[in-house]
Design a protein around this nucleic acid. Structure first.
Lengths: 136, 136
DNA sequence: CTTGTTGCAAATTCTTTGCATGACA
DNA sequence: TGTCATGCAAAGAATTTGCAACAAG
C-alpha cells in the first residue's frame, strides 16, 4: 500500500516534499531535497523524503533520471505528459526538449520489433551556455 | 592512469574480461560477468572485472546501461559506432535499433539549445516476443 | 630494480526496512 | 481506540579503494 486509497490525499509531509520539489526547476536527488527542506526549517526525515519521492514516482508526478553513480534524480513534472530533458552536468539546470520525434521514433521501433510494454528513457546531458566557458 | 599509455595493450586479465563480455550477446552486470568467468575456470577477481569494464567504458568499447536499481550493465560494442538497444526486461536479450533518427534529433536539439558537449542516453526496455505471454 | 596489474577485504554511498512513537478520525 | 505516517538507526547492495604480492622489462 504505497499509495493511499481512493479518498487518501497526500499526507502533510508528502505534500511538503512535493512542494519542495516543485520549487526546483531542475533534477534534484532525494538527499539534496531533504537537505533543502531541513535547511528551510521543515522538520522531515530522509526516509520520508525517499518514501514521498517513490510514491510520486509511482503516481507519475515526477520525472526520474539516474546519475552515472546510480543516484536517482527527480524533477517535478509540470504538465501531465511524458517529458524529456536536456540537463547541464555542471550547474544541474534542465530544460524540457521537444520530444515528439522521439515518441514517434520509439513507436516505430516498437512496432518493428514486436516488443510489448516498451518503456523508453532518453537522457541528454551537456554544458549549458553559461557553463560552457567553465566546463572542462 | 586508468588507461595504459600509448604502447600499453590490454593486460591478460583485461583481455579475458573483454572476451568474456564479447561472448554475451546481451547486457551483463560486472558481477554476472565475473561469475561467468570464474565458472569457466578463469581465475580473476571481481575488482579486476570492475576495473576492466571501467576502462573498456572509458575507451568506448562497450555500451552501458543502468538497471533501475543502479546496477550497471555492459554490452560489447560490435562496430565502433554509438549504438542504442531495445532490451527485454524479462530475459535480458537485447537487439540494436536503428538510431539515425535519434542522432539526428539530438543534433537538432543540441544546436537549438546552445548546449555543448552533449551526451545522450536512450534506453528502450520491454517484453520481447517470446516473453510476451509470460510478461505481466 | 622499477613499474604496473591483481586480488582480497574494508570502506563508501545511496536507498530501503524494522520498529516504536505520535497524530488524526 | 485504531490506523497510518514518521524518524532514527540498522541493513542491503553495488562499486571503489588500500595494500601487499607478483610478473615483466
Amino acid at each position: 500500500m504505497s499509495v493511499p486509497g481512493s479518498g487518501g490525499r497526500l499526507s502533510a509531509r508528502r505534500t511538503a516534499a512535493a512542494e519542495a520539489l516543485r520549487d526546483h526547476d531542475r533534477f534534484v536527488s532525494a538527499q539534496e531535497l531533504h537537505m533543502h527542506m531541513v535547511g528551510q526549517g521543515t522538520r522531515i526525515g530522509l526516509s520520508t523524503v525517499y518514501r514521498a519521492l517513490r510514491e510520486l514516482e509511482a503516481v507519475g508526478g515526477v520525472d526520474v533520471t539516474q546519475t552515472g553513480a546510480g543516484e536517482r534524480l527527480y524533477r517535478w513534472r509540470r504538465d501531465g505528459e511524458h517529458q524529456h530533458y536536456l540537463l547541464c552536468r555542471r550547474c544541474g539546470s534542465s530544460r524540457p526538449v521537444e520530444s515528439a520525434v522521439i515518441e514517434d521514433w520509439t513507436a516505430r521501433v516498437i512496432s518493428d520489433s514486436g516488443f510489448a510494454a516498451v518503456v523508453h528513457t532518453v537522457e541528454l546531458t551537456g554544458a549549458c551556455r553559461p557553463c560552457q566557458p567553465a566546463a572542462g
